[in-house]
């Protein structure tokens, strides 16, 4: 395994209150694999990414667990070592491509600086490679674009530049946090295709954070469904989307407008996302669950393999739910 997260818990504290952002999160990403992390706002998907990269704010504490990257626990690395991990070994793509780029630096220079640093080559050579990397993310006339500023590019072009930046080291793991949410559907399609191609060509693993199950279906081999800072279901994309077990996963799929049957009312999840300062003692989804048993409100379920699953032999399809 390239990346293994074991039993990770993260808390944020402010004004005598504790926000439990992650609770005993475990999952792993293999070499060359594209794994989707799905959840709504507040589910902890971005906090997971920031923890891996060591970018958590000062008010965050890691209560428990470890993150093994190539067998080493990144949580115990020194600041310097963590810094060499970031960018060089683990690349990151943020949601908003405008804020991820330096507004007053030309595209070519931004890329060349990163390449110059990570590949330890002369700046002139780095610039030449920067132009090549622009061509690689399918930007037409890369020499011309290299001389432009971010504001001169469209959202889709900017996101291509950000991908080129993140892939420049080149990293073994790419973390993409909602890389297409700010983009139009047609552009989203192209960007996803590009990321998939690059990953296949170089054997890069991708951790794709998204709230869109459609995006997961399109590019991910495996999916991790998060709710209120916990992993509630995980498995191969095909299996989880075709036979979801956790009521939350089912509800999430039911909430999507379906092109095939537009006349059915959307399945809305009753209630609100739980308050992370005051989580229920039993299953975190129980207050909103339509199939909750008395047991669900008392005992906290843990991830266990789904017995009747098609993937039962490998045990990859796992769910944290009493009502299976």
């Amino acid at each position: 395994m390239l990346l293994t997260i074991k039993d990770l818990s993260v808390e944020f504290s402010s004004m005598q209150q504790t926000v439990k952002a992650l609770n005993h999160v475990s999952f792993s990403i293999d070499q060359g694999e594209i794994v989707g992390i799905v959840g709504e706002s507040g589910s902890g998907k971005s906090v997971t990414a920031l923890t891996i990269l060591g970018l958590l704010d000062n008010n965050a504490t890691i209560k428990n667990g470890e993150i093994l990257y190539k067998g080493r626990n990144v949580l115990q690395l020194h600041k310097k070592e963590q810094q060499s991990l970031r960018g060089k070994q683990i690349g990151m793509i943020f949601q908003e491509p405008m804020t991820a780029l330096h507004p007053t630096m030309r595209i070519g220079d931004q890329l060349a600086k990163v390449i110059h640093r990570h590949r330890e080559i002369a700046y002139k050579e780095a610039y030449r490679q920067a132009v090549l990397s622009l061509a690689e993310v399918k930007i037409n006339e890369p020499e011309l674009v290299a001389r432009k500023y971010p504001f001169e590019l469209s959202g889709g072009m900017r996101q291509r530049v950000v991908i080129a930046l993140a892939m420049s080291a080149p990293p073994d793991l790419l973390i993409a946090d909602e890389p297409t949410t700010a983009l139009d559907v047609t552009i989203q399609h192209e960007i996803l295709k590009l990321m998939k191609e690059l990953a296949e060509k170089r054997g890069t693993s991708i951790m794709l954070i998204t709230h869109d199950l459609g995006v997961v279906a399109e590019v991910c081999q495996r999916v991790v469904v998060m709710y209120a800072g916990e992993v509630v279901e995980t498995g191969t994309t095909d299996e989880v989307l075709a036979h979801p077990v956790h009521p939350y996963t089912r509800a999430l799929i039911g909430a999507l407008p379906d092109l095939a049957s537009p006349d059915q009312p959307l399945h809305a999840i009753p209630g609100e996302s739980p308050d992370l300062r005051n989580l229920p003692s039993g299953c975190v989804f129980a207050p909103r669950c339509d199939r909750a048993l008395p047991l669900c409100r008392e005992d906290h379920p843990v991830l266990e393999p789904v017995p009747g699953s098609r993937d039962a032999s490998t045990g990859t399809h796992q769910v944290a739910c009493w009502v299976r």
Binding site: V185, Q188, L192, V215, E218, L241, L256
Partner: peptide, 12 residues
């Protein structure tokens, strides 16, 4: 526009 829409059901 229609073909770019991500869908859960590849069979559709």
């Amino acid at each position: 526009l229609l073909s770019s829409l991500p869908s859960l059901h590849k069979e559709n």
